[in-house]
Simulated scan of single mutants.
Amino acid sequence: MKILIIYGTIEGQTRKIARYMEDVLQEAKHAVVISNATEDPPSPKEFDMVLIGSSIHLHKYNSAIKHYVTEHVDELNKKPSAFFSVCMAVASNIPEEHEEVAKIASDFLEQTGWKTNTVWHWAGALRYTQYDYFKKLTMRMIAKKQGGATDTSKDHEYTDWDKVKTSVLDFVQ
């Protein structure tokens, strides 16, 4: 099967997840093309299946992802496709955080007209070592509220790689 993966990322975790998905699918003998949404990604027209992912920042998905989906929505709605949403709130034990993430995804799909039935919500990472001083303080405060890691001397990854692998392999079946 020929599969296209398009991603939008700010800090790199969504790219890391997309690359992992690419590896999993290639091991399963699928032909995979992967592209950052900001780098003139290919049309979904020539592919059997499309996986699109974006991180959430400030309650929004990557604008390049929104543009890509809007531009290709007719083609996306004709074939199997999935959306993977990456957000630290998924790692939270606070139910309202999960509800908010689901609403952001639902609103995105409604705004773009994309009719995918498959939406995955995966936890991202805290990249403390990449943040400026103010972002580090803000993210530490949010992490503390949600029960996450507050050691700012290192990065903390929350992505459940087994869940990513299982989800992707189940989807392509």
Results as ranks from 00 to 15, higher is better:
34 I>N: 13
71 E>R: 13
58 L>Q: 11
43 S>H: 06
34 I>H: 13
33 V>L: 12
111 Q>K: 15
89 A>G: 01
58 L>P: 00
52 I>C: 08
127 R>S: 09
22 E>H: 08
44 P>N: 07
51 L>K: 02
67 H>K: 15
125 A>V: 01
13 Q>W: 05
78 K>R: 14
30 H>R: 04
11 E>R: 13
15 R>D: 14
30 H>N: 13
5 I>A: 12
87 C>E: 02
23 D>A: 14
19 R>Y: 07
94 I>M: 12
4 L>G: 05
73 V>S: 07
40 D>A: 09
44 P>D: 07
65 I>Q: 07
57 H>Y: 13
121 H>S: 04
4 L>T: 05
94 I>D: 15
6 I>L: 10
76 L>M: 08
20 Y>M: 10
100 E>G: 05
16 K>G: 04
25 L>I: 01
104 I>P: 06
78 K>E: 15
120 W>D: 08
43 S>I: 01
90 V>D: 03
84 F>Y: 14
111 Q>H: 09
37 A>K: 12
15 R>H: 12
97 E>W: 06
6 I>N: 10
84 F>T: 02
21 M>S: 13
57 H>F: 05
59 H>S: 11
123 A>K: 11
83 F>I: 13
77 N>H: 10
115 K>I: 00
116 T>R: 12
59 H>W: 09
90 V>H: 06
55 S>V: 02
47 F>C: 05
73 V>N: 09
21 M>K: 09
14 T>G: 10
23 D>T: 15
59 H>A: 09
97 E>G: 00
23 D>W: 07
73 V>I: 03
10 I>P: 00
42 P>Y: 09
49 M>I: 04
4 L>M: 04
8 G>K: 07
91 A>M: 03
44 P>I: 02
103 K>N: 09
109 L>P: 03
69 V>S: 11
101 V>E: 11
44 P>Q: 05
46 E>I: 00
20 Y>Q: 14
73 V>L: 06
102 A>W: 00
9 T>L: 08
82 A>K: 06
38 T>Y: 03
99 E>M: 11
99 E>K: 15
124 G>T: 05
55 S>A: 14
61 Y>T: 01
41 P>Y: 05
28 A>I: 00
66 K>I: 03
124 G>A: 08
16 K>F: 02
73 V>R: 15
119 V>P: 11
114 W>G: 06
14 T>N: 12
25 L>G: 08
44 P>C: 05
47 F>D: 05
93 N>D: 15
88 M>Y: 03
29 K>W: 01
112 T>G: 09
41 P>I: 01
64 A>Y: 13
108 F>D: 04
58 L>C: 02
5 I>L: 14
29 K>F: 04
6 I>P: 09
3 I>C: 12
